[in-house]
Each structure stands twice: as C-alpha cells, then as structure tokens.
Design a binder for these strands. Structure first.
Length: 493
RNA sequence: GGCAUCGUGGCCGAGUGGCUAGGCGCAGCUCUGCAAAAGCUUGUACAGCGGUUCGAAUCCGCUCGAUGCCUCCA
C-alpha cells in the first residue's frame, strides 16, 4: 500500500478559489505542468521561489508514493518584449543587443538556470521541453483553432478571437475577470494593430524580414505566440486534460487564461483540473522582476557579492527561508529575515546531528506517532511547510532534551523519529546537510585540532594569554572555536 | 480607474469564531577563567472604527495603508 492511500491531501485550486481534496485523474499517477523560464537573462531569485515551491510539491507527491510526470518547459522563442503582441521577441532582442545567435542566448541562460537550480538542490523535472522543439505541434493547434472558427488570419499572423470564444465559453474564469470589464477598461493603444479587438492574442506571428527566429507555416514564415507553447507541450506529454498546472501568480493573466482558451477551443474541454499559483517574492516590499531592476541573482547571494545583504548565504539557508513561508503568500526578502532563517537552519542541522548519536533508553517521553501525524497534516493542508517546520522544531527541542539526559526514547521510537525527520527535512523540504558541503579537509581539521589541544594545555596551566591568542587568531581566519562540556569543537564561518 | 490579495508582537512568518504556531532578536538562567557557541525558561500581537455573537484577531460593513494584475515578467 502506498502512503497516498492513507492521506487526504488538499490543494488550493486557483480556478475555484477553494481548497479541494486532491484526486488524480489516474489512481497513483500525477501529471504536472509548470511554466518554466524565458531564457533571455540570468534566472533571478523570484523565479527560483516559484520553481522551488513546485519542487517541494513534486517532492511531497513522490514521498507519498505517486508516480509523477513533471513537465517544466524552457521558453526559447515567442515571448515578446512589450505591449501585447507588437513587441520584439525577448530572445531575439537579447541576441541583437549582445550580437549573438538567438540560440547562443538560449544556451547560455539555460545552463545558468540549471546551475542555479542544482545549487538549490532541485530535482530535475521528468521532461523539460523547449518551445522551439515543438513548432510543428504548435502549428497544428493553430490550424485546429482556425478550423473551429475561434481564430482569424491577418497579414500572415493568426489571432485568437476572444469575443467569439466568450460567446460559448468563459474567458476570464481563472483570473476572475469579465470580458465586458476588460473591454471597458482597455487603454487606448497609440498604434492600431491588426487585431479585431485589443483582447485578442497572437497564436502565430508573421516574421519581419530582419527577424532571425522564423519557421515556415501555412501562413508564411513566422513564429509562435507565447501562450501556445504551453498548450502544445502540456497536451503532448500529459494529455488533453491533466491534473496540475502551476506557475507564478503573475502568469494567471493573461498567460494561463489564454492557455485555457486555446485548449477549450481546440479540444473542447478544460485542460487542467487543479491550477496552482505560487506567490511573488518581494524585496524591500516591491516585486522582484528583471524588468524593473529590483532583483538579486542567486549567485550574488551565494557569494555575498551584492549591495543588499550583509553577508553570503548558502543555498540551503535561502531554501529554508523560503520554506518558512507558505507558497501562496507573498514573501519579502530582507537581510534580517535571511539571518534569522540561517540560524534556525543551523539549529535544525545540529539537532539532526545530535540525534544520530542518541542512545535509546527507557520509556519514550515523546509520542512519535502523534507527532508524525501532525507533520503529515501540515503538508496535506495545501503543502503548509511553515507548519511542518514548526512541528520539526518541536522535535528539535525534544532532541536537545534527550542530549541533556532530561528525556528518554526507546529504540523503535528513535528509529521512527529519525526516519520521519530525514524524510521531511531532506526528501520533502529538499534541504541539504551543511556538513555535506563544508570544505573542511582532513588536513585542516588535523591542524585545528592540534591548536585546540595546545589551547587546552594553556588553559589547564591558566595561561589565558596564549589560549585567547589561539582563539582570537583562529576566529580572524574564519574558524570559530566552540567550548562545550565534552571539549572544544570548531566550525568554519 | 477596474479586478484581486493582504495589513499579526522588535523582525520574519503560520493559524483560527473560544484551547491564542514556529524561527530570529530581547531578557533571565545553565555552562565557562572570560567570552563566544550551545541549551533551557520567558514576556510583548492580531491597522483603525462600527456591527453580528455568550464570545472575534478570526464573520460583516466602512476608513486608512500596502502589494499584485489589468502591458513583458515566476
């Protein structure tokens, strides 16, 4: 029996606005699609938060024993720079500015994306398809939508006819908008374009002569509209209807709304059963975005080379910080918040370390089964990682009392506690034990331990001048000595 | 202007009609030659004003404020 059979997982469905009991289309299997990045610049921390939320969700599904097909795309064409469908392709623009082939831009930033995600300990998705790899599929969908009368061609471009679609379907149901309101609130566009209505969006765009990224189509050379790739790829790998579609909150409109429209127009059914949206990461109270410059790159956090934070933070510390907030809440990044999370993260890792050396004894003072259930309850309530972490800290406190000999635990409970903590901390939250990436070589620890020994001799002789000199100079080198009951240990800061 | 979300103690952040998370900081204590580290203990709260209720921070209304989307963005 798989774990999921005994758990009632509830998911906040953006489409209904409610928490719903999760039941996959096919027992034991989950299809999940998440909108990936447009690879025209370095991935910033806000992007990472969204992908981290879905990484945690992916991990919990796997932990529950589901077989998950997780598709996360790479947008390498079709995403326009500005004003609706009139702008330049983002990739093409960057290529022009940097005098590179578009595919050089794509390659460079795809590699950056993967590097950063690896540092954050993300699990790779099952499939990572690209827009340019699915041009044929996209053209087929455009043809289909044209055939069904929900699109029109104009000068080599094809647009989705939102008004027509809205006669029979509900355009705006995901984002809570009404087409009439949108029409009423449309700003006057200075440049009149080919669209019948401003709400219409491009399925296929004609390529101007200077446009490098172009593919032949029944309507002439062009390139696909941004919304189309996700419909093409999600359908191809997950079917016309699948379980979960995720992405950042800012994609809700228009991107996801348009995906729904495309799929309903083409396949006659709503494509997604559970829509999930991860909320924004802000910095100084403002949304982080590439376009506004209010952002920080993950690499700058790991190295400390930035003007916003007082020091460098490890990927796990940042991950822990993000996991302390619910994925549907706005999270504000600040130096103080990161410092606080880093300390908490270290405390957690210390406790796990202590737990591995605890000797079982006597009758347990801790109801491991009841505690374990509260951990699952937290996760089953729409992936409430902040509550899970609070529960984990209940265990941390107990572990510290075990160490002090004030509480006891029997052998089977100890094993259960260890297994459960490892599962949630490492498998589900995706944290990494800090000792795994510590660079203290055997030689270094040999040298420091020798100094610790010398210092102890000096202290035993009450030669505090010598002992303090050793301590202070090591500290200046970034090696901190910690005097405990069982002797002195050290850590690198 | 329209739509939406939110406003929780020094900071970050959960949650909920009555049992009032958690992390960090502060304070006290233990340990220590001193310090650091570590551990233990522990206050302080639900933007404002009305209303519903036996009871609201939690529901309703209004006011103020913030943010997001409405135009590229995770």
């Amino acid at each position: 029996m798989e774990l999921y059979q005994s758990q009632n997982l509830k998911i906040h469905n953006s489409l209904s606005g409610k928490k719903e009991l999760f039941k996959p289309l096919n027992e034991g299997r989950i299809g999940m699609y998440v909108c990936g990045p447009t690879v025209y610049s370095n991935v910033h921390l806000g992007n990472c938060r969204t992908f981290m939320s879905f990484d945690m969700i992916f991990r919990y599904f796997k932990h529950l024993g589901y077989k998950v097909r997780y598709v996360r795309n790479i947008t390498d064409a079709g995403h326009l720079v500005d004003d609706g469908d009139d702008g330049e392709d983002k990739i093409a623009k960057k290529a022009r500015l940097e005098q590179l082939e578009p595919m050089e831009v794509v390659q460079r930033y795809t590699i950056d994306f993967h590097n950063i995600l690896q540092k954050f300990n993300f699990l790779p998705p099952s499939i990572e398809p690209t827009a340019t790899g699915h041009i044929i599929e996209q053209i087929e969908i455009v043809k289909d939508i044209l055939d069904k009368g929900y699109a029109y061609e104009k000068n080599g471009s094809v647009y989705f006819d939102v008004a027509k679609f809205n006669e029979t379907n509900d355009y705006g149901k995901l984002s809570g908008r009404k087409l009439e309101d949108m029409i009423a609130n449309t700003r006057q566009l200075t440049a009149q374009n080919e669209k019948k209505n401003p709400q219409d969006f491009a399925l296929w765009k004609r390529a101007e002569p200077q446009h490098i990224m172009r593919w032949p189509s029944p309507w002439g050379d062009g390139f696909p509209g941004w919304h189309l790739e996700c419909t093409a790829m999600s359908t191809k790998y997950l079917g016309e209807t699948f379980d979960i579609h995720g992405g950042g909150m800012d994609l809700k409109f228009p991107h996801h709304e348009c995906e729904i429209a495309q799929a309903e127009a083409s396949y006659g059914q709503s494509p997604v059963r559970y829509w999930m949206h991860a909320n924004m990461l802000t910095m100084n109270g403002k949304k982080m975005a590439k376009s506004t410059g209010n952002n920080i790159l993950p690499g700058e956090i790991f190295t400390g080379e930035n003007s916003i934070l007082s020091k460098a933070f490890s990927p796990s510390a940042v991950r822990f910080f993000m996991m302390q907030a619910h994925y549907t809440s706005i999270l504000d990044l600040s130096n103080d918040a990161l410092l606080a999370s880093e300390k908490g993260y270290h405390r957690l890792m210390e406790a796990l370390d202590i737990l591995s050396s605890i000797v079982p004894k006597g009758v347990s003072d801790f109801d491991v089964q009841a505690w374990k259930k509260t951990c699952y309850d937290a996760m089953n309530d729409d992936f409430n990682t902040p509550i899970l972490i609070a529960k984990i800290f209940d265990a941390v406190k107990f572990i510290n009392l075990l160490k002090d000999g004030e509480k006891w635990i029997n052998a089977s409970d100890l094993k259960e506690l260890q297994n459960t903590l490892n599962a949630f901390v490492f498998d589900v939250l995706g944290l990494v034990d800090k000792s795994d990436n510590a660079d203290d070589s055997d030689k270094l620890s040999g040298v420091v331990n020798l100094l610790i020994e010398l210092r102890k001799e000096a202290r035993d002789n009450k030669d505090f001048e010598t002992s303090d000199k050793i301590r202070n100079q090591l500290d200046a080198l970034g090696i901190q000595l910690k005097d405990g009951k069982e002797g002195t240990t050290f850590s690198l800061s």
